[in-house]
Amino acid sequence: MKRIISHMPIWIKICSCVFVFITLVALLADVLVPYDPDATSLLERNIPPLFMGGTFAHIFGTDELGRDIFSRILSGTRISLGMTLFGIVIGGSVGVLLGLSAGYMGGIWDRIVMALIDFQQSIPFTLIIMLGVVIFGRGIPVLMCFIGMAKWEYYAKFIRSMVLGIKEKQFIEAAKSYHASDLRIIFKYIFPNVMPSLIVAVALTFPSVLMLESSLTFIGIGVQPPTATLGQMVGSGRNYLVVSPWLSLAPAAIIVTLSYCVQQVGEWMRDEMDIRLLKD
């Protein structure tokens, strides 16, 4: 761990610190928010942020209903980040399990998984998410599951091809020769070898999952108002771009910062470990 950090170029260090900072702030949102993010105050509508002539009471200004933007961004970041990370965990677990089993077992199961991957890639998945949201209602857990399912095939595909390579190695043969069970081989010998690439893959998919989540909430599919997510705040703020541009720009800046930082770190790790499977 210490070695990894000392290897980091300064820019990557900054990016990781920014990401950790935003995550910590989002985790502590309940304690840090100065106001209730959903509380309206009609006397304090459309106050500009501090650097545009506002007051210290609302450092990021207020929206058309007098809600404090800073508080809404904090709680919105927590929801958006939470949905993205849980989405990645769900998609990652499904993809890892299918990829490991398909690569290890081969045969008919491998073909089925490959067919599923092809199917997933040949349909515009956003439409499927829209359908799913209609079926199960607009809600955070529903959206989270569907967002997770959007990326499973990415994990399944690269893990399968990694397993195909590892399977032929001698230490697997050695394990087989003393009758280690298949499950033991998969989780004790193959999985640890896949793990570093998996971490990089998570970092590399993070921006696209965050963007998927924020695009969906941006067009109004997903989370019910008044719950704030970053995408939803950008979306509802776009009607007031002339009078109060900060309504959209402040949450948009958080989305861009988050995805930029994680993407930089991910790409650095990929190049450092030289994982060719994850190029592009």
Binding site: L241, S248, A252, S259, Y260, E267
Partner: peptide, 22 residues
């Protein structure tokens, strides 16, 4: 390119609208 990659389409749209539209 890697900076642009981190910007979702709708944010680009909003920035363009602000600059060229308004």
């Amino acid at each position: 390119i890697s900076a642009l990659y981190a910007i979702p389409g709708f944010v680009i749209a909003i920035i363009l609208i602000m600059i060229f539209g308004y």
